[in-house]
Design a binder for these strands. Structure first.
Length: 344
DNA sequence: AATTTGCTCAACCGCCTAGTT
DNA sequence: CAACTAGGCGGTTGAGCAAAT
């Protein structure tokens, strides 16, 4: 007799979230921060289970999420990382701070997997999910696991170094990767002290859901970047930490007026999918707040002494970011699989 | 215009892990 | 140390939409 599922309770609503529910959830989290999900339905009156609330926030309402339009660089990162880490989507997502694990998982299953399969048809004998069939067969499970551990350590170190390079060279790599650490998934969960900056851009999500509300097509609303993206985080911090968030410990009834206050700090000159890093953000960027370090925190088993030539993985993982010319699938697969398998 | 087929992605389900009692 | 619980994760599903017939 296991414990009953959390969503078995009578009266728990399932299915798609309504804009009203979204607003309530965002409003609550802006005030209290994410975490303690069990308290969310209880305190907001939402007829949702805690898991559903968490999922909704993580995958949809969380600030800084970029939706759709995976860049070439992101695609390659995913393929590389998938080859290294397997289907550990959360781990992969931690290297792509603007993407959710669910999004990456979906993208992998619907696009990349297909690409790989198609590529297999061209004669490469690669197994599903990006792992080399040859290596799969030739390497015993234990060997594979050991190698995987080594791979992870090396990738981790290389990314660590590469990201610090990224930082110094600012936008030379994909702009998406230069986002401030405050917009990361893990931080939302594990670094409450920084949460406020992340909540600020919830306004864009609210606007997005309002677009959903007015339009009928959720698809267009989710793929079209919001006009109202974030201002600098320092400004957002001010807006959220000072007057614009509801006070008095209750979730405000989100009237249009209430929404105005939430939306008031939006600017209109940037794009969610291309959020540029402001001077403030750059100044505030600290390696220890970087998503990579967050990821490392969450993967203690990956800590280790793995040393490797930076230039090597740098090239492997990140250099191709500069090469924005579209490469054909052949290159993509060669990069992801051939090199991954061969290099280690 | 109506129907079928395929695709996308938000959300659910169940298992696992870490923290707490 | 065992039992319990919440949070987190990956696999899977199915509703909604678009393209094809």
């Amino acid at each position: 007799m296991g414990r009953p599922p959390c969503c078995d309770k009578i009266g728990v609503k399932k299915g798609p979230w309504t804009p009203e529910e979204d607003i309530i959830l965002v409003s609550y989290i802006q005030e209290h921060g994410p975490g303690n999900w069990r308290a969310v339905p209880a305190n907001t009156g939402l007829l949702r289970c805690s898991k559903s609330c968490r999922l909704r926030w993580t995958n949809y309402l969380r600030p800084g999420i970029k939706r759709g339009n995976f860049t070439e660089h992101e695609e390659k990162m995913i393929i590389h990382l998938q080859a290294l880490l397997g289907n550990r989507w959360a781990a992969i997502a931690s290297y792509l701070p603007q993407r959710t694990d669910n999004d990456i998982k979906n993208y992998w299953n619907t696009h990349l997997k297909k690409k790989l399969k198609k590529h297999q048809g061209h004669g490469h004998d690669h197994s599903q999910d990006g792992r080399s069939a040859a290596s799969h067969e030739s390497i015993s499970k234990g060997q594979w696991e050991r190698r995987l551990q080594t791979d992870i350590q090396m990738a981790k170190k290389a990314l660590c170094e590469a990201l610090s390079i990224d930082k110094s060279t600012s936008d030379a790599v994909a702009p998406a990767e230069a986002k401030p650490a405050s917009m990361t998934l893990n931080q939302s969960y594990t670094k409450p002290v920084l949460q406020s900056s992340a909540y600020a851009s919830s306004a864009e999500n609210i606007e997005r859901l309002l677009q959903n509300w007015t339009r009928k097509s959720p698809k267009s609303a989710t793929t079209v970047p919001s006009e109202a993206a974030t201002q600098t985080y320092s400004e957002n911090n001010r807006s959220v930490l000072t007057g614009s968030s509801p006070s008095e410990g209750t979730v405000s009834a989100m009237t249009p007026e209430g929404l105005d206050s939430l939306l008031s700090f939006n600017s209109t000159n940037s794009d969610v999918s291309q959020q540029s890093v402001s001077v403030d953000e750059a100044a505030n960027f600290r390696p220890d707040e970087n998503v990579f370090f967050q990821a490392a925190e969450n993967k203690p088993s990956l800590e280790g002494s793995g040393q490797m030539p930076l230039s090597f993985l740098e090239k492997w993982l990140l250099d191709d970011a500069g090469a924005l010319q579209v490469q054909d699938d052949q290159d993509l697969m060669d990069m992801s699989l051939g090199e991954t398998a061969d290099l280690f």
